[in-house]
C-alpha cells in the first residue's frame, strides 16, 4: 500500500473541498472495497478522506420514496422497518450479500460504487486489464472467466458487477443524489452505470471529486409482489453466479399489470431487463410467459466457454423468481 495522508471530514462541503484540492485523493467510507483494492495495489491514492462522520446516515420516508443516506450501512437499511415492509426485495438482497461483518461496515453509497471481483483487475501483476489500464487488454477473455459477465460485455472487458442490492435498485428506478463542488444533481440509477464498451475504466456517471449523498428508492405500491433470488456455488458469503430481482403487480385476472426485472451476477453493470418487462407486462402469469421473458432478458448475451452456463442459469433464476412472486408453478 502506498503511503497516504489520512484526513477526516465532518461536513460534506469540507469533504468536497478536500477532494477538489487533490486529484489523487479518494474518499473512504466503509472501506470494504477501497482498502481491499489499496492492499492489492490497484488503488494508490496519496490522500484518503474519511467521510464516515459526514451527516449522511439518515433514512427518511418522503413522498412515496425512501431516501437513504449514502453512509447508511447495509445492515442498517436491512433493519429499517419501512424497507422491510415496502421494499422486501431490497432487504432480501442486502441480507444475501457478503457477511454480517461486511454489511456492518459497507455503506449504501459505497455498495453502488463497489468494484468488480475480477481477479485480473485485482492483481496488478497482470498487465492486461483495460479497467485498470485502458488499452492494456483483457486477460479474462482468454483466461479464467467462469464468474464473468455475459451481458453488457465488450471485447475489452467482461468483468461482472458484484452488487446484489444495486440489482434491486435499478429494477426499482432508484435515483442517486450526488454532491459535488459544482453543485448537487440527481441521476436515475439506470443511467448511472456505464457498460464497458472501449472505456472499461469508466464505470459510472460520477465525476472526479463528486460524492454520492443519498439514494432515493421509490416504494413499491401496496399489493406489489417481489423477491430477490441469488444463486451461487455455496450457500452464503459469496457473490452471485446469477440473481434476479423481480417486482410485479398482479391483476385479479392473474395478468401481470406491470413488471420490474433486474439481473445480477451476469452483467457488467446491475442489469435492468426491460425486454423481459415488456414481455411480462399485460401477459398472463404462466410458465410460457416466464420462459419468453427470461429468453428476452438474455437475448443479447455473449457467452464465453466457461460462463456459457450463465445464460441458462440466469433464465432459470428469473423464471424461478417469477414463479415465486406470482405463485404460478412451472
Amino acid at each position: 500500500m502506498r503511503p497516504f495522508t489520512y484526513v477526516r471530514a465532518h461536513e460534506v462541503g469540507t469533504a468536497l473541498a478536500e477532494a477538489e484540492a487533490d486529484s489523487r485523493a479518494d474518499f473512504l467510507a466503509g472501506g470494504t472495497t477501497q482498502l481491499d483494492l489499496m492492499k492489492d495495489g490497484v488503488l494508490r491514492p496519496d490522500r484518503l478522506i474519511d467521510i464516515t462522520r459526514l451527516p449522511l446516515h439518515g433514512i427518511e420516508e418522503r413522498q412515496g420514496a425512501l431516501i437513504v443516506g449514502a453512509l447508511v450501512t447495509m445492515e442498517e437499511l436491512a433493519a429499517d422497518p419501512v424497507a422491510g415492509r415496502r421494499l422486501p426485495l431490497v432487504r432480501e438482497a442486502l441480507l444475501r450479500s457478503a457477511s454480517v461483518q461486511l454489511r456492518n461496515m459497507a455503506t449504501i453509497g459505497g455498495n453502488l460504487l463497489q468494484r468488480t471481483r475480477c481477479r485480473y483487475f485485482r492483481d496488478p501483476t497482470v498487465a492486461a486489464c483495460n479497467k485498470r489500464d485502458r488499452g492494456s487488454g483483457c486477460a479474462a477473455v482468454h483466461g479464467s472467466h467462469r464468474t464473468h459477465a455475459v451481458l453488457g460485455t465488450s471485447e475489452h472487458c467482461i468483468a461482472t458487477h458484484a452488487s446484489d442490492v444495486a440489482v434491486t435498485l435499478v429494477a426499482l428506478d432508484a435515483v442517486v443524489h450526488i454532491s459535488g463542488a459544482a453543485g448537487d444533481r440527481k441521476v436515475p440509477l439506470t443511467g448511472f452505470y456505464r457498460t464497458p464498451g472501449d472505456t472499461p475504466d469508466v464505470e459510472n456517471d460520477l465525476r472526479p471529486g463528486e460524492l454520492i449523498a443519498a439514494v432515493e428508492i421509490p416504494l413499491l405500491p401496496e399489493g406489489a409482489r417481489s423477491d430477490y433470488l441469488k444463486v451461487r456455488d455455496r450457500s452464503s458469503y459469496e457473490f452471485a453466479l446469477a440473481s434476479a430481482a423481480v417486482a410485479v403487480g398482479l391483476g385479479a385476472d392473474r395478468r401481470i399489470e406491470w413488471a420490474r426485472v433486474g439481473l445480477g451476477g451476469v452483467a457488467t453493470v446491475p442489469w435492468r431487463a426491460v425486454e423481459a418487462e415488456a414481455v411480462l407486462t399485460g401477459s398472463p402469469a404462466d410458465g410460457e410467459v416466464f420462459a419468453s421473458a427470461a429468453a428476452a432478458a438474455v437475448a443479447g448475451a455473449e457467452p464465453r466457454p466457461q460462463n456459457a452456463f450463465k445464460v441458462d442459469l440466469a433464465q432459470r433464476t428469473l423464471v424461478r423468481t417469477l414463479q415465486t412472486v406470482t405463485g404460478a408453478g412451472s
Binding site: Y6, D36, L48, D50, T52, S99, Q101, M105
Partner: peptide, 25 residues
C-alpha cells in the same frame, strides 16, 4: 482481505472486520 472473519471485533457494538478497517478511522 475481508474474506474469512478471523479478525472480527466489535466497533461501537457491531461486529466488523478489523483487517478492512483503518485504525485511524
Amino acid at each position: 482481505q475481508g474474506t474469512c472473519g478471523a479478525c472480527t471485533v466489535h466497533v461501537d457494538g457491531r461486529r466488523v472486520l478489523s483487517c478492512l478497517t483503518l485504525a485511524a478511522q
